[in-house]
Design a protein around this nucleic acid. Structure first.
Length: 517
RNA sequence: GGCCCCAUCGUCUAGCGGUCUAGGACUCCGGCCUUUCACGCCGGCAACACGGGUUCGAGUCCCGUUGGGGUCACCA
């Protein structure tokens, strides 16, 4: 039975790199008919865990990555919060202590620091002298008499080799003597990450530890703990990490200002800001940026586009397949085809996946998504009013391929404002209306076409307009801009005939009259 | 700095000794289409880090160099 896990720390947001790791764990479990478990790494959290966890759970739900055991669903191995498992960790510490594989250490932090710096100065690797190690109660009592307090450290081997058979990296060796005597329990009695992680992986029956490469170098100490506790070792698979756009440095959540210097990242970010602003949303720079999953959900990405993109960031099936349904991902995923080198996050390519996904979305669903943005920005009532509701599908259909994300509908809002409230792009207005003396003639003629179109449909309007330019001996492009500006205030938009039909005869006349007067 | 990992177009990748004058995708650049803006279509630019081996033959195997990265907490 395959059991994998993802262990997020309740930080308040779901990081894109974390999602990729979770996805691979999820896929591996699903492929092998096993379980995917969510464990909450809150051993060091003083803040409100519940509030900081919710966005993470919501993110996974949105992406369709479900968990078999963990928060909300629970399961046979609970509790799934590390803050509630301290008794397990204490038992493990006691075992390690009794077997002489860990010790009470009374060194002060400055004393350790001094040793570390000395090693650094001599350009050799640091190895603790164990000068303040207490291996029996008498020694401990002596140190305590000096007013010292103890942490628990691992008493690492000082010879031999630790061999890791990594599913992705192959055989990796570490000399035990280079491994530090890690602290596994703080002076206040709380357990630290490595200890908690190993104990819980065992308690949860985790068979495959699939995690990012940054954990490779601390695997030896985890193996030491596991062996000391007589646990069977899980299979390890160290994924390459997700790197910054255009770089091989690990993607971090705290370097947004730096990423903003990357034009592609900036463009995506601005796109998001534009939509969020149009929705009248307050922006939190910590969570509203392309490194955090919420960003994509909030501006109208399709979750599957994000998942599909992330799948290909460090994994491929072959030399051509790029689009995968969830079922296909599960069917084809193998650790064997995970790439070893880091993959840098490419905002442009993610958008391309989204574009493709959006284009293939059925109209009804597209409409539903877009309408929610119109509602958020107050342009459409919830539920839509009687005169708006029937037009919605037609409007979205007329967007054709212009919406990359659902929030893009907010660039085409002139169908939802009243004729009096329509605003004009000033430069365009000046250029095509004010400065062009012939335009009044064209607009007036166009008003006649609108007025006499019967029925008022795009086919009849198009026929009348084509006849008009033929008669006048002018190009169509000569009349497009003035008309478009008169009707929508802008030079860009849908097909002009769609636009006219969607605005409707009455509004077209009203908007034309605003200009003609 | 010690230890460890990695190395094919700008980016994601295919390539598991000959079929590679290195394939696909995104980006970019041309052109076409055209009622604007998108879309679409056609075409193009662009890579095996370097040096040694092994071999009849190396992008593919080995070693070294260089480069990039990760990690070295009473964080996770």
């Amino acid at each position: 039975m395959v059991r994998t896990r993802f262990a997020p720390s309740p930080t308040g947001y779901l990081h894109i790199g974390g999602v990729r790791t979770a996805l691979f764990n999820w896929l591996y479990a699903r492929k092998h008919g096993g379980q995917f478990i969510l464990r909450i790494d809150d051993t060091d959290q003083s803040r409100n865990v519940e509030a900081a966890l919710q966005p993470i759970l919501d993110g996974f739900k949105w992406l369709g990555i479900d968990w078999d055991e963990g928060p909300e669903v629970n399961g046979p191995c609970g509790p799934y919060f590390q803050s509630q498992r301290s008794d397990h960790y204490q038992t493990a510490v006691d075992t390690l202590l009794s077997k002489g594989l860990a010790y009470r250490d009374y060194a002060r932090t400055d004393e350790i620091q001094a040793e570390r710096e000395a090693a650094q100065a001599e350009k050799r690797s640091f190895l603790y002298s164990r000068n303040w190690m207490a291996e029996n109660d008498d020694q401990a009592a002596a140190f305590e008499a000096e007013g010292r307090t103890a942490v628990i450290r691992l008493k690492m081997h000082r010879e031999g080799t630790c061999v890791i058979d990594d599913e992705i990296r192959g055989r990796v060796e570490f000399e035990w003597a280079k491994e530090q005597d890690m602290v596994i329990q703080k002076a206040d009695g709380s357990a630290l990450y490595h200890l908690a992680s190993v104990v819980d992986d065992h308690a949860f029956g985790i068979t495959h530890v699939i995690r990012a490469e940054e954990h490779l170098s601390n695997t030896p100490r985890q193996i030491f703990i596991a062996q000391g506790l007589d646990y069977d070792l899980p299979t390890y698979a160290h994924l390459p990490y997700v790197a910054e756009p255009g770089s091989k440095t690990k993607l971090s959540k705290r370097k947004i200002p730096k990423y903003l210097k990357n034009p592609d990242f900036k463009q995506l970010y601005d796109h998001g800001q534009h939509i969020a602003t149009a929705c009248g949303r307050e922006l939190d720079a910590d969570t509203f940026n392309p490194v955090i999953v919420d960003f994509y959900r909030d501006i109208g990405f399709l979750p599957h586009a994000v998942v599909n993109y992330l799948l290909l960031l460090g994994w491929s099936l072959d030399d051509k397949t790029e689009q995968f349904s969830k079922e296909e991902m599960i069917e084809h995923f193998t650790l064997e085809r995970v790439v070893k080198s880091p993959a840098s996050f490419d905002p442009k390519k993610l958008v391309a996946f989204q574009q493709r996904e959006m284009d293939s979305l059925p109209l009804k669903q597209k409409t539903a998504l877009a309408v929610s943005y119109l509602q958020q920005s107050g342009l459409v009532d919830d539920p839509p009013s009687c005169d708006t509701a029937p037009r919605l599908n037609d409007i979205i259909e007329a967007t054709e391929q212009r919406m990359t994300v659902a929030g893009d509908i907010l660039d085409y809002t002139d169908f939802f404002v009243t004729d009096d409230a329509l605003t004009y792009d000033q430069d365009a207005y000046t250029k095509h209306i004010t400065e062009n003396e012939d335009d009044n003639g064209i607009l007036a003629d166009f008003r006649h076409i609108v007025e006499s179109a019967n029925p008022f449909e795009k086919e009849t309007i198009e026929a009348a307009m084509r006849a008009y330019i033929e008669e006048k001996g002018i190009k169509f492009r000569a009349i497009v801009h003035p008309i478009r500006i008169a009707l929508t205030g802008k030079t860009i938009g849908f097909s002009l005939f769609d636009t006219i039909a969607l605005i409707g005869q009455q509004s077209c006349l009203a908007r034309l009259d605003r200009i003609l007067q």
